[in-house]
């Protein structure tokens, strides 16, 4: 699981696919206001792109992530909560949504909805949570690698993917477990 796949086809197609997926995710996120889509679906698409990268490049893809996944979760939740609370300061109610119509030169009328910020928060949260889970699993897998290298290779060769009694230091998987939680918090904040 931790070894990169040396598949030229996969690597090449992923290189082309990832930008497209991110673009699709952005479209899906913003059309979610009154059509199928939204932050959750968009976030999952980006997360799928990250997972594709991982499948093609192996753990390097996770190590190279530009942002810490948990920072992303925090930022997303912050944004969502901020958008939920903001109307209180202008005399509205929690989670109230406002629509502004702007006249942008050369583009025409653009509708800006304040709840798009909420969707963006959910988007960030989902991307962070899913990549966080992936990172935690990869890390747990890596932590096991010494066992595999140390014992299993000598005995039965590299074909053995995992040592069945491979032990991981205590608390190692804390990341994996906890990263599942913001996803649980997600639906609560979505509503």
């Amino acid at each position: 699981m931790s070894r990169p796949r040396d598949s030229v086809i996969l690597t090449t197609s992923v290189n082309g696919l990832v930008p497209v997926l991110v673009l699709v995710a952005v479209v899906v996120t913003f059309r979610g206001h009154n059509a199928p889509g939204g932050g959750f679906a968009g976030g999952l698409i980006v997360a799928a792109a990250v997972i594709l990268r991982y499948l093609a490049d192996g753990p390097r893809a996770v190590d190279r992530l530009p942002v810490q996944p948990m920072t992303l979760v925090g930022a997303g939740l912050c944004l969502a909560v901020a958008v939920a609370v903001a109307p209180l300061f202008v005399g509205g109610q929690v989670l109230e949504s406002y629509i502004w119509t702007l006249d942008v030169p050369a583009v025409g009328k653009v509708k800006v909805v304040s709840s798009a910020g909420f969707d963006l928060g959910v988007f960030l949260l989902v991307v962070g949570a899913v990549t966080g889970m992936l990172a935690a699993f990869v890390e747990a897998d890596d932590a096991e690698a010494p066992d595999v290298v140390g014992s299993a290779i000598l005995e039965s060769g590299p074909a053995d993917d995992r040592a069945p009694d491979g032990r991981v230091a205590d608390g190692r998987l804390a990341d994996g477990r906890s990263s599942a939680d913001p996803t649980g918090g997600g639906p609560g904040s979505r509503r």
Binding site: Q68, M70, T71, V73, G74, A75, G76, L77, C78, A80, V81, A82, A84, V85, L88, Q93, V94, L95, P182, G185, G188, S189
Partner: peptide, 24 residues
């Protein structure tokens, strides 16, 4: 209307958000 009830839910969630962002 008074926003207290909604804030009962939003404040801890907001706290969770900030403390997640302050990871570490």
């Amino acid at each position: 209307m008074t926003p207290w009830m909604a804030l009962c839910i939003v404040v801890p969630l907001g706290g969770a958000a900030v403390s997640l962002a302050l990871h570490g």
